[in-house]
Design a protein around this nucleic acid. Sequence first.
RNA 1: CGGGGAGUGGCGCAGCCUGGUAGCGCGCCAGUUUUGGGAACUGGAUGUCGCAGGUUCGAAUCCUGUCUCCCCGACCA
Length: 572
Amino acid sequence: MRYTQYFLPTLKETPADAEVVSHQLMARAGMIRKVAAGIYDYLPLGLRVIRKVENIVRQEMDRAGAIEILMPAVCPADLWEQSGRWQQYGKELLRLKDRKDTEFCVGPTHEEVVTEIVRGTVNSYRQLPLNMYQIQTKFRDEMRPRFGLMRGREFIMKDAYSFDIDDASADISYEKMYQAYRRIFKRCGLKFRAVEADSGAIGGSFSHEFMVLAETGEDAIVSCDSCEYAANVEKAELRAASGEAPVPTLPLERVKTPNLRSIEDVAAFLKETPAKMIKTLVLQNENEEVFAVLMRGDHTLNEIKLCNYLGCNHVQLADEEIIKKLTGAPRGFTGPIGLACRVLADQAVAVMSDFGLGANEADYHLTGANYGRDFEVEAFVDLRQAGAGDSCPRCEGKLEAWRGIEVGHVFKLGTKYSDAMNATVLDDEGKDRTLIMGCYGIGIGRTAAASIEQNHDDNGIVWPMPLAPFQVIVTMLNPGDEAVFAAGEKLYLDLLAEGIEVLLDDRDERPGSKFKDADLLGIPLRVNVGARGLKEHSFELQDRRGGERVMLPIEGAAATIVEQVRTALAAG
RNA sequence: CGGGGAGUGGCGCAGCCUGGUAGCGCGCCAGUUUUGGGAACUGGAUGUCGCAGGUUCGAAUCCUGUCUCCCCGACCA
């Protein structure tokens, strides 16, 4: 591609609305442009990267035996009513009506549509297993789109759906996708972790998220420093502390703690550590049922674990009014003694003794409190959020904490959709069997953005070879010089003939501008063609990542460059 | 959805309080000189000041409404 004939609007300045580096650089490098909140144009350079990711995904899906299809973006409400999701899915589902007032939605995911395909055409176990995927533009009307392609409303996603006759077969389908995903993200040159994820309201199934490690990630994950265990903190289990609670040694005492509401303040006042305190959280679920949860003072509640235990969808901290009504005291002085509601405790509380807690009375706390002697709880449960330094639940190792960008999710669905939509096949005994399903998503644009989060420096993007929009940029330092122009042109054509993706910077610009643009675009290899080098019958080859420059004799230069591109691709 | 902020040329912003010919930097066009890390000079083009009402002799500026965008939070198979 010749720069002068291309459409590549780079920006010197960072657009004001871009917060994270991937969004800033994508905008500056002329890859994307915002059209509305969470909705973007993919300009030529951006589209090339998107296609690179798509092609890697497509190759690995095909290799894993999945079959590509394309389903409609606009889906009839009727199908969604069959699965029950027309009611369940909230405002995130973009709904619309056609001229006849028939209701539709713009698909955020396609379980219903794909299940309908299979239901109508697959009748026998002999036709299974089956895995179909598509790469398609999806729409989710996010409350708060942000971070460019990382969390858009319209986005490109690969979604695959597997259908199996039984659990054992479905587990094999799942494992194939899991391995395909590992290959995909490895080939994209990303540092990632596959982590166990919460399976949400569906229950009884399992799920892994593929997380690209990045400071700006929206998810917190933990991984073991000595075994393979890794999980989203939403999911990460914690082992119960071993041992018995020490015998109480102190009497229960009432202590005046004027206006001290936080655990830190009270602990400091009592000359204790927060770990010797218990905090009592009052929470409310979606049915307005009120619960109290006891946590060790320095621990954090994991609301998802609580929801899973309670069998509800959502909990939130109760407001001041509810707390007052329940405890008779303002927020900050709540304790479990005498509380008229269900009281749960994290398992860590079971091995504590002689601790401090709220007195359910304004400006008072209690010290020397002990479970069993002073109060009871309904159950001890694992309710705590895991973090760095916690013990691995699977081995003797310690957990490390990371931030991650969720680029892929594999999910064993079970029969949620096949049941609701009556998708069955006949087994080898001629009996109806409900299909076991799995679904597997990859955010294509998000993967490209995540790659930039991991691969950039102060000057711009540093693409790994497999995702680079062009593999080589040939920069003619002075295209007005006939010798330079001819040499650059020849190198460009030679590289093209070898199948290399090359951008020829033939613009009549000053060298400095061209260098800055080349760095911004992040093309892995740059060849500087200038009068100075030509005097020595050489080009200058510069590596974007390391910045090293070497002189390349013109004779054989193309072959050397081709070799480097191929090596870099093979390494991915 | 709650809280906060912003809409002025392609991009980044000033002007608004205290109403009176719409400005700056970058970019863009033409020319001259330049040419190995975002050149200099000269000349030039580009705005219904988000939209709709209102107040006023006069509104980017004041008032009302509305839309959009951004940030924090909540939400997220």
